[in-house]
Design a binder for these strands. Structure first.
Lengths: 214, 214
DNA sequence: CCCACCATACCGCCTTTGGGGTATTTTTAT
DNA sequence: ATAAAAATACCCCAAAGGCGGTATGGTGGG
C-alpha cells in the first residue's frame, strides 16, 4: 500500500447543526482531514482558494444565499473541486438543480453517519451520491455524460468526442478527416475545450482525458 | 473481473531440456499461451515479428550465439517485448549483463515450476525477476530506474527527467530554464526520447509517462 | 419571437514541436 | 588508454498548435 493520500474537506455550513458530529466522525478517518470551515457565503470562495479542498460539504441553507448558487459560483472558479450538498429538505426540485449545476451529491442531514461517510468516499472517488435516500451510485468515471465531468464542465458531445481523439494522438487534420469536419472547426472546438477546462496545452488535455477516462 | 487478457509467450530454446515440462505447465494456465517456439537464433527475430509475444523465454545457450546478444538484438527491434532469460549457469557476470542489456529476468533452469511461474507472471506485470535464486521483486512500476522501463528502453537519467517535465506541461523553453540547459539541448533530448520510444507526438509521450508513473 | 447555445467555418499571427542534420565535451566502461 | 554512451549545443525548415478575432445556420426554451 502507498502512504495513502489525505483528502482535504472544507465545510461550508451556516447552522452548525451538523458539524460537531460530523467533525468527530471525520477525525476518526486517517485519510480524511477537515481543512477549514466557514459559515458565511462571502468567505467561501476565499476559503476554497486558500485550502484547495478535494471535497466541499456545502449546507444548502446559508444566510440569504442559496447554497446551489454558491456551489455554482465555486465551481465556476474551481471547476475541479467536488461538492456534496447537505440539506434538511428532501425536495426533488432542489436535487435536480444541484445535479444540473454540477454538484456531485445531495444528501439529507438525517442520513446515518455511515451513509454520509459512504457518500463522501464515493464522491472523492469520482462517483456521485444523489437522491434523498442516499443511494450511492458507486460509479467510477464511465460515461462522460450523466452527471459526469462532461456536464459539470459544460462540455458538449462534440467536445468530448474531440478530446478522445486528441488523446489518441490524432492531429487536427486527422480528426477533421475522421469525423468529416474542417480542420478549422476542430481548432475552434479545441479552443473552446481549453477555455472550459482552464488549460492551454495538449499535455494538460491528455492528463485530463486520462484522469476522466475519456 | 474483465475477460482476462491472454498473454502470448514465445519460447526460444536450443536444447529443449526444459520445454516439455514448461509447456505442460503453461498449458494449465488459462491466461498464458505459448504462441511459438524456435530453436535457432536465426529464426528468432522473424518469430517475434510473426507472433508479437508479450514475453519471450530465452535460453542462454543457443548454438554459437550468445543468448544475451540475441536478447539485445530482439530488444533493439521490439523494444516493448519482455524477455526472461533461462540458464543453467549461475553466473553473476551474465546476470549483470542481462540486466544491463535490458532483459527483465534471469533465472536458473532448475528453479521450481512455482518459482518459474511466479517469475513469468511477475515479468508480465511489469516487474523483474533477477538473481540466481529467483527472488521476485514484486515491483509494479515505481522508480524509473532499477530495472524498470527506463533501463529497458535505454532511457537515460536526463531523458526521464525531461519526460517528467514535458508531462507537467512545460515547454522546451521552460524546461531549459528549469534545469539550466539550452532549449536546443532539450530539443535534442526530446528527439532521442521519441526515437527510443518509437513515438512522434507529445500526446503519446504523456500517455507513456502516465502509464509508467513518471 | 428572441436569445442562448451548439456546431460549423474561416482569417491572421505567432509560438511550439518535429525531423533532418552535425559537433563538442564529459562520463563511464572495458 | 580508448571506445562507447551521455550530455551538451547549434543549424534549417516544415508542421502543428495556440490565441485573437468573426460569422452563420440550427435548435430549443422562456
Amino acid at each position: 500500500m502507498p502512504p495513502e493520500p489525505v483528502s482535504r474537506i472544507l465545510l461550508i455550513d451556516d447552522h452548525r447543526v451538523f458539524n460537531d458530529a460530523l467533525k468527530s466522525l471525520l477525525n476518526e478517518q486517517p485519510d480524511l482531514t477537515v481543512c477549514g470551515q466557514v459559515s458565511k457565503a462571502s468567505e467561501a470562495i476565499h476559503a476554497v482558494q486558500r485550502t484547495s479542498p478535494h471535497l466541499i460539504l456545502l449546507d444548502i441553507n446559508l444566510q440569504g444565499v442559496n447554497g446551489i448558487d454558491l456551489g455554482r459560483a465555486i465551481l465556476s472558479d474551481f471547476p475541479l473541486v467536488r461538492i456534496l450538498m447537505l440539506t434538511m429538505y428532501n425536495q426533488p426540485k432542489l436535487l435536480d438543480e444541484a445535479r444540473r449545476v454540477g454538484l456531485q451529491g445531495y444528501l439529507l442531514k438525517d442520513a446515518s453517519t455511515n451513509d454520509l461517510l459512504r457518500a463522501i468516499r464515493n464522491v472523492l472517488n469520482g462517483g456521485t451520491s444523489f437522491d434523498a435516500n442516499v443511494p450511492n451510485l458507486t460509479s467510477p468515471p464511465e460515461d462522460p455524460f450523466g452527471d459526469q465531468f462532461a456536464s459539470r464542465l459544460h462540455l458538449t458531445f462534440r467536445e468530448v468526442e474531440i478530446i478522445a481523439l486528441i488523446r489518441e494522438g490524432l492531429s487536427n487534420e486527422q480528426i477533421a478527416d475522421k469525423i468529416h469536419l474542417s480542420p478549422e472547426t476542430v481548432k475552434t472546438h479545441r479552443k473552446n475545450i481549453h477555455f472550459k477546462l482552464g488549460i492551454s496545452k495538449v499535455t494538460e488535455l491528455v492528463q485530463f482525458a486520462i484522469k476522466n477516462g475519456i
